[in-house]
């Protein structure tokens, strides 16, 4: 035992203790999630020989890239203890604006794409304003934004979005480089960026402080009110960007293009080990969650399960992940594996 001999006897009954080399919950969870993804890919060969091949893995990764980018935004919102239910509407908004404002060809794409992202971010900021200043609970405010945006998109397109994909987005989604789709390089860069932003920047640190304890963060001098808008704006911009990617992927926009991403975006974050109460989580874990979910989705499709069953499985995964991650279940398991006995 490493009794802290040099330490003055603490007054409080609780002493400073740190279980030897405690693996924290986030690390254990990330390892488990990535491990499960790999196992699932390998096992999927037994279901169908087409699954588990290299090209199949690449397809899964392309599909996962949408979810990875979305769940970065959702993850930041959950990090501060909120919930973003407006993601599908903003995917649609990003997609519809891309096809109608830019359309096929590439005219003005260099300023139009950023402009569309700014529009989306502003919509997200509006949700944030409602949450911070009007004190509307996050899930209700984002739900309200969502329905307003969806109606605007519906009205704006009169029900059927026109136009096709700018060629630069087609290039991003369809071209290959050194035997790997370009979008995968892009996603890797995004993962690096997101991981650094969430865990190693002043902004990320402040967001985590805000999610851990708003009051304490405020007293420590963090400008919590304005800060709270940021994740909603980022999440909306991410959703808008995924809308663009989907335009490139399927060469067009539809009004329901975002619908199937709402639950997975939450599920990926929760499975990735973030606490739904806020204040903890890493983006790497979320990435693992996104890959696991996408793999699972592919396997479900291969088996031929209907949309309903797929939804049920997603719901069960969310509840299961919440239950498993409640308390320090994984930490206990992890530590027990490291240190046997007392």
């Amino acid at each position: 035992m490493n009794a802290h001999k040099d330490m003055a006897m603490p007054f409080e009954a609780s002493s400073d203790r740190r279980g030897r080399q405690k693996l924290d919950r986030e690390t254990v969870n990330t390892l488990v999630v990535f491990g499960l993804s790999i196992v699932l890919i390998v096992c999927s060969r037994f279901i169908s020989p087409a699954l588990g091949s290299w090209s199949q893995v690449l397809t899964v990764l392309i599909l996962a890239s949408f979810l990875i980018i979305l769940s970065f935004g959702q993850g930041l919102v959950i990090l501060i203890g909120g919930l973003d239910l407006s993601i599908p509407a903003l995917i649609t908004l990003g997609g519809v604006l891309t096809t109608t404002w830019i359309g096929t060809g590439d005219a003005g794409v260099w300023y139009m794409l950023p402009a569309i992202l700014v529009v989306c971010a502003m919509v997200g900021a509006v949700s944030g304003i409602g949450i911070v200043w009007l004190k509307v609970p996050p899930f209700i405010m984002t739900m309200a934004t969502s329905i307003v945006v969806a109606s605007v998109a519906l009205g704006y397109t009169s029900g059927t979005p026109r136009g096709g994909s700018p060629s630069s987005l087609l290039w991003l989604m369809k071209s290959w480089f050194l035997g790997v789709p370009v979008v995968i390089y892009f996603t890797l860069a995004f993962i690096l960026f997101g991981w650094l932003l969430q865990n190693f920047t002043a902004l990320g640190r402040r967001l985590r402080a805000l999610g851990t304890n708003r009051n304490a963060a405020l007293i420590a001098g963090v400008g919590v009110n304005r800060l709270e808008l940021v994740p909603y704006a980022i999440s909306a911009a991410c959703a808008g960007f995924v809308g663009m990617m989907l335009v490139g992927y399927s060469n067009g926009a539809t009004l329901r293009m975002g619908d199937s991403y709402m639950l997975p975006s939450i599920a990926a974050v929760v499975i990735g080990g973030s606490s739904i109460l806020g204040g903890s989580g890493t983006f790497i874990g979320t990435v693992g969650g996104a890959i696991l979910l996408t793999t699972l989705g592919t396997v479900i499709s291969a088996i031929g399960l209907s949309e309903g069953w797929r939804t049920i499985i997603e719901g069960a995964i969310i509840v299961g992940a919440l239950l498993v991650l409640r308390g320090e279940f994984l930490t206990h398991v992890g530590n027990r594996m490291l240190t046997r006995g007392k």
Binding site: L196, G204, R205, R206, I219, G279
Partner: peptide, 30 residues
Amino acid sequence: KSEGILAGLTTASNMVLPIISRVARGGIVW
């Protein structure tokens, strides 16, 4: 407990939070 510490963050992170932007090097907090 309720207004001071940020549980889950390291002691060093807790201490530097108010001056976190000064601690960052090239935008990154190591």
